[in-house]
Design a binder for these strands. Sequence first.
DNA 1: TACTCCATCGCATGATCGTGTGATACCACC
DNA 2: GGTGGTATCACACGATCATGCGATGGAGTA
Lengths: 218, 218
Amino acid sequence: MPVSIIIYEDNDQLRESLGSMVRLNNTLHLIGAFENVLAIEDQIKLLEPNLVLMDIDMPGITGIEAVKRIRQLGIEIPIIMLTVFDDNQHVFDAICAGASGYLLKKHISSKLFDAIEEVLNGGAPMSPSVAQMVISSMRQKPAQVNPYSLSDRESDVLTSLSRGNSYKLIAAEIGMSINTVRTHIKSIYEKLQVHSQTEAVSKAINEKLTKPLLSMLL
Amino acid sequence: MPVSIIIYEDNDQLRESLGSMVRLNNTLHLIGAFENVLAIEDQIKLLEPNLVLMDIDMPGITGIEAVKRIRQLGIEIPIIMLTVFDDNQHVFDAICAGASGYLLKKHISSKLFDAIEEVLNGGAPMSPSVAQMVISSMRQKPAQVNPYSLSDRESDVLTSLSRGNSYKLIAAEIGMSINTVRTHIKSIYEKLQVHSQTEAVSKAINEKLTKPLLSMLL
DNA sequence: TACTCCATCGCATGATCGTGTGATACCACC
DNA sequence: GGTGGTATCACACGATCATGCGATGGAGTA
């Protein structure tokens, strides 16, 4: 079953050559190529593509805005952004808006099919420099001092607790006795001025005392 | 000028084979290979490597903890994590701790040099599945409406619970029997697929399932 | 009318948690 | 050498929670 694709690209020449590439690959099926995204909602709903190739830098409504609109429809098809910039705010914004990956225009001829395959397999193709930006943004800034002066171990316990783990699981995850978990939690409660797990978790998450939670992404 | 490298890996065989690979490449220079990270601060400060290969899954102090320690020293050298897991919390934690990229152990033979080159050029090598997770984490979730189809009352209870209240307090705040609170919480657990307060609160806050404060004022 | 949700409440049992009172050991600091 | 903080562990008791098994009544719907 071929993968149906829609292209949004305002440059006639590039749109044509993208279309040609897609048509040359018999696992792909081009079902639309447009020079703007004015009617993108209708087009997506009508044509039901398996994948979208989206230029970021279009006059009028940008590709980023277009991605937001698609995601607002609750449609989770892969969208690969195309851009001439490799490390600017636009690419970053596109990721935040819900793009699945992106491809530099200078790499299209060599990597388009790789990128398509990667997003279809649940991956997220992106250039090294943006990958770096993305993971930098997730770093725990050492400057983030905890206002409750929790010790290292207490932070570990609190983080695990905030993921929803029981004492038993915390003990297993961190590698200590359940009694030690109790002890740490006792002092956490004192420092946070709370008296139950829920209070502690609530405070911890709302005041960002814990590391980001992975399970929330799945 | 060769790139100086330190390896941390508790498995003797793998440490040896990593060392051999590095030594075979004449642009790289192996300056240390250790089976644990107990003295990592001193080793890093003394040997001043250009790059670190770090096993995540070491007994005692994990590679993640070791990354944190390096970053706490204010040292920003690239650190590539090595792990057998490709999509778990540990990899995510490693990125948050400050890892520059990571490599699955099964891909070491084919991609070690690529990964090294990529981090040295400011990139962030990672597997497609984790790249996808990372990107998802930055998504602006389009105003989600009860993805778990909680009833009105269940939302009230969950909101109160997420503020850190006990069953007794929830009952008092909303105005119902503690047994009714239990019943609602039972169905909340079922719908959220959790089995404890902390799990529920964690999920509720992270996924913004709770109502805004206004609704609690009545 | 019957059926399906929702909201309300009760009870009982075993598991888990909250808390107090210990202890030992390491480390830094004065 | 003492003092204070951290990390580790143990035990015990009462409080709270998790869960299964009920029950009743109302609102909406086929």
